[in-house]
Simulated scan of single mutants.
Amino acid sequence: MQSVLAGFTLGFSLILAIGAQNAFVLRQGLMRQHVLPVVLTCAISDALLVAGGVAGFGALVQRMPWLEDTMRIFGAAFLFWYGSRALISAWKGSDALEAGQAASSLRASILTCLGLTWLNPHVYLDTVVLLGGLSAQYPSPLHFGFGAVTASFVFFFSLGYGARALAPIFARPRAWQILDVAVGLTMYAIAVSLFLG
């Protein structure tokens, strides 16, 4: 249970950071346009990436024990950088979300979603390298991976289908700043726990 909870928490924290993919899902939800195919595409893609990371790094760490400490330190440093980026974004402020864009076809929406997911270099650092490496620290890496995959499904379905309720809030740039601060502080907290652990 501890491994599942750790995987869920870390997976959710990493995916929470607002980026191009999440902004796209939020826009699709606000417009109520192809929401189910889009959130499924994101969640299944994440599941494949997490599975690859957990399977590959679990076996690798067993053969190279020193890799676990290296990945833990790398993970802490990466999360600190990630948190700093979110806090800088909050400091600078960002534009309000504009939901009034023209409708797009299902095919265009899926292709855009796939591009934002698989062509983003950070997805490989976050999902494959970081989550895969950290999973080896837990008694059951598979349970850790299950927690991270569950977080992806919960997050994307909540974002896609909950977006309509958030429309008035995210029409204001201040809401993005508050969210970025929350993301930054969460990343810092996880980084400190990794470094001390």
Rank of each mutant, 00 (worst) to 15 (best):
T9E: 14
C113A: 09
F170G: 04
A59E: 15
N22Q: 06
A167C: 14
E98R: 03
V39A: 00
A103R: 14
G162C: 15
F8H: 02
L131G: 06
A136G: 11
M71E: 09
H143T: 14
G56R: 05
P37T: 05
P37R: 03
S158W: 11
P121K: 01
H122Q: 12
P121G: 02
A59R: 12
T117L: 07
Q101L: 14
S13H: 12
A191I: 04
E98M: 10
G56S: 07
S3W: 04
G52F: 01
W81K: 11
I110R: 06
G52Q: 06
C113E: 05
H143L: 15
G145L: 03
S104N: 13
D69H: 13
S89A: 12
V4Y: 13
A175K: 09
Y82Q: 01
A151K: 00
L16N: 04
R164N: 13
A99H: 11
G56A: 06
A23L: 10
F156S: 04
S158V: 10
L196V: 10
L185N: 06
S104Q: 13
G11I: 03
L125N: 02
Y138S: 10
T127G: 10
M187S: 12
V35E: 05
S3P: 11
S45P: 00
A59Y: 14
I73N: 07
S94Y: 02
T41F: 07
A167W: 03
F8K: 01
G19A: 09
G132L: 05
F153K: 03
Y124K: 02
L49T: 02
T186L: 11
Y124Q: 02
N120D: 10
V4A: 15
G100L: 13
Y161L: 11
I73T: 10
R107I: 09
A163E: 09
R63T: 15
N22K: 04
L114M: 07
V61R: 02
I178A: 13
G162E: 09
T117A: 03
D95R: 05
P121N: 01
L134N: 08
F80H: 05
L125M: 11
G29M: 06
